[in-house]
Amino acid sequence: MTSGDVKQLVWGAILLALAACVPLVANGYWMSIALTIAMFTVLSTSWALFSGPTHYISLATAAFFGVGGFLVGTGMSDYNTDYWTMVVIASLAGTVLAFLVGLATLRLSGVYFVIFTLGLAEMIRTLVSWIQNNFTGSRGLYVLTDLGEADIYIHLVLVAALVYLAGWWIARSRLGFAMRIIGNDEMVARHVGINTAFSKVILFTFSGFVASLVGALIAPRYTYIEPNGVFSPELSFIVVIMALLGGTGRLWGPIVGVIPFALLQEYINANYSNYSTLVLGIAFLVIVYFLPHGVLGRLEETWAKRRRSTW
């Protein structure tokens, strides 16, 4: 470890500690926004760990997130299981699912992968609704805990710490180096001895684990779990937009997109809720045409240019 590495760790720890203090100053409305931001920070950052270097656009976030939330709901309502036990079970189930999906999608690339992952959440949602309607009766799934938004927020900050630490470690590890090579040229990657399948599945599984864990941890916020809500494909798209908007070139890139976009969404939903879909569309177009490397990428380009011109 170089001194630069240590410095980054210290800075990260300080920032996370500050983030953990938010509940001390924020109340009701702002606490709720902070919670949303924390949730999307974790989701987008872990999404970018896999999709950033490989350029595989995964839309499976909603599937794993939904599995997390849905299992917590089912476990607590239908089987009277304790909340924390269900969090563990749900995130394990999400991990296993992510591992299987990872194995199955290995040979897919580009648009096939995108559609496969998009359809996954849809299929699980329709299957779950069907099973609920036909076999378990239409009893609601309630997640009743004594956890408030501040508690959930702290849980998510802890998960964020885990994700950032993992990302920090990956960037310095052989795995991270392998991912960068895979993102450049998969054929070359195989020919320098990289087990590309293994590397991709590991990271895809990790991001699936994180998404299902987040889905489980956030469940108490909603109290009442509905498949159509937790499996909503919109979540996957928002995660993609936020990560790409910030920039996936760096570990802390996604959060640069998460904060403004979460605030924008909050504003649009409060004032012009009919236009939320239109905003998603425009966000995608803005990213593709004006910010192909995200806000961070754009800033880095400008800095590089300025440095060159002043010399």
């Binding site: 656009i57 580009g110 798209f237 879909t277 239109l278 569309g281 425009i282 177009l285 593709v288």
Partner: peptide, 16 residues
Amino acid sequence: VDSILATFGMAFALVG
């Protein structure tokens, strides 16, 4: 990748 993102954007915008 670009055309996936761009056409998704168009799709959402059209839906909106």
